[in-house]
């Protein structure tokens, strides 16, 4: 386990920077990838966003004040990058975010990097119908099994609010899976 403070210090020091960044990428790339993939769904897009996320982290590490954990800071950047990617794409195609999300899910069937069965596809369809916040919380809690305290730091929301969001999200997903 790496000591976060040391790593941050090394990242801010010129001659240790490159090596420390490599450690950072190796430690967090998979976790950040799955966070991003849960939002953009498609692998190539997730790859783009993940690279941009690390580039942003690299450029802005000097601005990292240490008042939040490195982990939640990076998660926040990844989440925001993924969300703005979706919004940008939707705008480029002249459709709403919701329509774009639905399109993403309908593309999953033809996606070579999606091997989910019918129920998993349906689960993705259900998630696509959720409001943004609930979608994020659901992905982070259900799939990535993050703790409420961690999600709270990443999304800057109270634990109580998150529990409510998650509860609502689960209810809606269940409802969707039962009826359709």
């Amino acid at each position: 386990m790496i000591v976060e403070e040391t790593l941050v210090q090394e990242l801010k020091t010129k001659h240790t920077q490159a090596q420390a960044f490599e450690v950072l990428v190796n430690t967090y790339k998979e976790r950040l990838y799955w966070q991003i993939r849960g939002i953009v769904l498609n692998h190539d897009d997730a790859d783009d966003v993940l690279q941009n996320t690390f580039i942003k982290i690299y450029r802005n590490i000097d601005g990292f004040k240490g008042d939040s954990q490195l982990f939640s800071w990076m998660y926040r950047i990844a989440t925001n990058e993924a969300l703005s990617f979706i919004k940008q794409r939707a705008r480029m195609q002249g459709i709403t975010d919701v329509d774009y999300q639905e399109k993403l899910v309908s593309n999953l069937q033809a996606d070579v990097f999606f091997e989910g069965d019918e129920i998993q596809l349906k689960l993705q369809q259900a998630i696509a119908t959720l409001p943004e916040k609930q979608k994020l919380v659901f992905n982070m809690k259900y799939f990535q099994e993050l703790k409420y305290e961690e999600i709270s730091k990443i999304l800057d929301t109270s634990v109580g609010g998150l529990k409510a969001s998650y509860h609502l999200a689960v209810k809606k997903v269940e409802q969707y899976l039962k009826t359709d």
Binding site: L41, H43, F113, E115, Q120, F143, E145
Partner: peptide, 9 residues
């Protein structure tokens, strides 16, 4: 960290 039963590869 592969999410459970998500179907993505």
């Amino acid at each position: 960290f592969m999410p459970k039963a998500k179907g993505f590869t």
